[in-house]
Nucleic acid binder design. Structure first.
Length: 663
RNA sequence: GCGGCUGUAGCUCAGGGGAUAGAGCACCAGCCUCCGGAGCUGGGUGUCGCAGGUUCGAAUCCUGCCAGCCGCGCCA
């Protein structure tokens, strides 16, 4: 990324402070590039302080700004905006120059995302999580952060227990039978089908009904849970087998969209390494929790929340951390885990390369393992200076409690740096739900609702793999229509890249506080505000470069060299402003990325990429490069397109959207 | 009850003090002997949920209200 504006703003702000004392000088981009490249409405606020007309103040400021290097002109417009124009040829040259990305930053950022229960196939809600998380990771890395990506595996929870019950009681399988089921899934997966996680999707839905028929059957779940925690017996073996097999499936699904992880911490290893016992000691010693002698929580260890939260009786709110039977709650475990992420626990996991699967390139993410099984040489994990937990909005309360726990332990800074990246869920419109599953029986009330929650227990939802398959099939059909001569493997690769583009864009285009009411038609759209539209704009520029090489022997390096030498002023007057407008739009990327990180709103990057692609497509139609006769104009026009291309590709890359070689 | 989020065009959504409130979809009409239509150009719609307030200026900030959704468990 190349940032034209930050340094310039600093200069202008300094010049303005020479006239009036101000902490903060506001800047904005003028709504129309004809007005200028950078604007400040500062004269309006100064007018109040100085008790003079804003326009008059603006004129004075303009005089000083005019003198600054890199400033090509200053004008006062409207009621008192100061509009600044910059040197265009120099700007274009710089934008085509070497990368100026920020230097590495101190500290380490942990991003935890995906976190799918390893009991059935990933659904489209998990896709939103992983895509948001992965985009966060990419943006952090692009701005110089060292990032560690964690995907937490809850392999001892109720969901896994239920699937073990389903396998043993409903499917009548023993460990050998489960192994066989997993193997069959692997064979299907090898030829592009769904793995064992797909089998479990329906099986898991059935177990809820099975419990419903006879409540005494819940004892089976308790038995399995117990076995999982102790890691003993055939039920535990099946649980471990299934959980790791499903994790493998999830990793495969996520790899389809280009999402990878550094380390997979497992709940069972948190238990095995006795993280909670360690945290319990620290919490007790620090006074963060206390033993409740009386009240509703008598006999429990509780944490008094520093918030002014009260329950309906007006009593001070306390959160139970250890139950009266001595077992720890979910929040308690989460506090221990969060402490580990910051290196505050004084205890670590052991690690080994993920045992169940390797990425196709032969690398493996790391996983945690029980005591005594770890490899001596492994990267350092945890010890973060900041932690992002990507979890949906329903966990907001618990995330606050976890941060409060750190605070109460005396780690105020880490509490502040514990960031809940919350987002709303993906749901199904009743129409889409019925379309996908016509056999579904919805109540009157459900039909009237704007959306329906996906429910693993009802089998209601859309599998991530199925959506990806649909996207790839549709994209492949389009590719075959448009480029019938393309070899099969190339067509498939392009279709895959288009599918990813469509899916990732779809999940990012909504702001995070909005429920995505999943709509098949919208998700499968390749036209309008979509990923493929953005990809297409980049491909078009790429095609011009191809033609340039075919017809004139000018390769990409040559084209870039030509563009760097271009004189922007060579562009004839009537189109000059439009050319410049595209450059300006492209130059805004370094403004967009930090803003997106600050607000955790990656829809802004999606919107930016789309606007830029739209500008490129419009430009493409009005200003041909290859047909342009005048060599100076042609070089300048090429330069403009290359500037736009660079920003568009960078923006797409931040969202994990690849650009196909052709479309 | 308490807390959070959402309410903007027919639909899906951007915009979150500042220049004339915008996109996409859908609908209609145009556009290539081309750098391939996943495109471009036009066409028109808005009590920005309602009511007050702050401000030179409010879709945007504040207060209240209405509607919808989500949380608030000795579940995970």
């Amino acid at each position: 990324m190349i940032d034209l504006f930050t340094a310039l703003r600093g200069e202008i702000a300094r010049a303005i402070r020479g006239v009036a004392d101000l902490d903060d000088v506001p800047f904005e981009f003028p709504p129309d590039p004809a007005l200028g490249d950078l604007a400040t409405p500062v004269a309006f606020s100064l007018a109040r302080v100085l008790r003079r007309a804003p326009r008059q103040i603006a004129e004075e400021l303009a005089e000083r700004i005019r003198e600054l290097p890199g400033v090509a002109g200053v004008e006062v417009a409207g009621p008192g905006y100061v509009n600044v124009r910059i040197d265009r040829t120099a700007a274009v040259r710089r934008l085509l120059g070497p990368d100026e990305s920020p230097p590495p930053r101190p500290g380490k950022v942990v991003v935890e995302h995906t976190n799918i229960n390893p009991n059935k196939a990933a659904h489209i809600g998990h896709l939103r999580n992983a895509i948001l998380g992965d985009t966060l990771v990419r943006c952090l890395r692009a701005t110089g952060h060292l990032v560690e990506v964690q995907n937490y595996i809850d392999d001892t929870g109720v969901q896994v227990a239920d699937v073990v019950v389903a396998l043993t009681e409903l499917a009548g399988l023993d460990a050998a039978g489960v192994r066989e089921l997993i193997e069959r899934g692997e064979e299907r997966a090898a030829s592009g089908g769904g793995g064992v996680d797909h089998d479990l999707w329906d099986l898991y839905a059935r177990v809820t009904a099975w419990y419903g028929e006879d409540e005494t059957r819940l004892a089976k779940r308790a038995e399995v849970l117990h076995a999982l925690e102790r890691r003993e017996g055939p039920l535990a073996e099946i649980g471990a087998l299934v959980a790791m097999a499903v994790v493998r499936c999830h990793l495969r699904t996520m790899l389809r969209l280009g999402v990878r992880y550094d380390v997979l911490p497992r709940e069972s290893d948190i238990l095995a390494h006795r993280f909670w016992e360690q945290a319990f000691g620290l919490l007790r010693e620090s006074g963060a929790i206390r033993f409740a002698e009386e009240g509703k929580a008598a006999g429990c260890w509780v944490m008094d929340l520093p918030h002014d939260e009260e329950d309906e009786d007006g009593e001070k709110y306390e959160k139970i951390i250890v139950r009266s039977n001595g077992t720890v709650t979910y929040v308690g475990k989460d506090i221990a885990y969060q402490m580990w992420k910051f290196g505050l626990l004084g205890r670590d996991f052991e690690y080994a390369p993920f045992r169940a699967w390797a990425y196709p390139d032969g690398t493996r993410p790391w996983q945690t393992v029980p005591p005594g099984e770890g490899e001596p040489d492994h990267p350092e994990f945890g010890r973060a200076t900041r932690v992002y937990n990507v979890i949906d909005v329903r966990q907001s309360y618990l995330q606050r409690v976890v941060a409060a726990g750190l605070e109460r332990l005396g780690h105020a800074e880490q509490a502040r740096e514990s960031i809940h990246f919350s987002y709303e869920m993906v749901a199904l419109s009743p129409r889409t739900a019925l379309m996908l599953q016509p056999e579904l029986r919805l109540t009157e009330e459900e039909l009237a609702r704007p959306w329906l929650d996906m429910s693993g227990r009802r089998g209601l939802g859309v599998k991530a793999d199925d959506l990806l398959d649909m996207l790839e099939r549709k994209a492949l059909e389009e590719v075959r229509n448009r480029a019938p001569e393309a070899p099969a493997d190339e067509a498939e690769r392009i279709a895959h890249e288009i599918a990813i583009g469509a899916l990732r864009y779809y999940m990012l285009r909504h702001t995070r506080n909005k429920v995505v009411a999943f709509d098949v038609d919208q998700a499968l759209a390749f036209e309008g505000e979509t990923g493929p539209y953005c990809q297409y704009a980049a491909v078009r520029i790429s095609r011009i470069l191809d033609k340039l090489e075919e017809r004139e022997g000018l390769d990409r390096g040559g084209a870039l060299g030509l563009a760097r030498e271009a004189d922007f002023a060579a562009i004839p007057g009537e189109g000059r402003l439009e050319h410049w407008g595209l450059v300006l739009e492209a130059a805004r990327l370094p403004e967009v990325v930090p803003a997106a990180l600050e607000s955790l709103e990656f829809a802004t990057i999606a919107k930016y990429a789309f606007d830029l692609a739209r500008a490129i497509n419009g430009f493409y139609h009005r200003w041909p490069v290859l047909q342009e006769k005048d060599p100076a104009t042609r070089a300048a026009r090429l330069a403009v397109l290359l500037v736009a291309d660079r920003s568009l590709r960078e923006a797409l890359d931040l969202m994990g959207i690849p650009v196909p070689a052709r479309m």
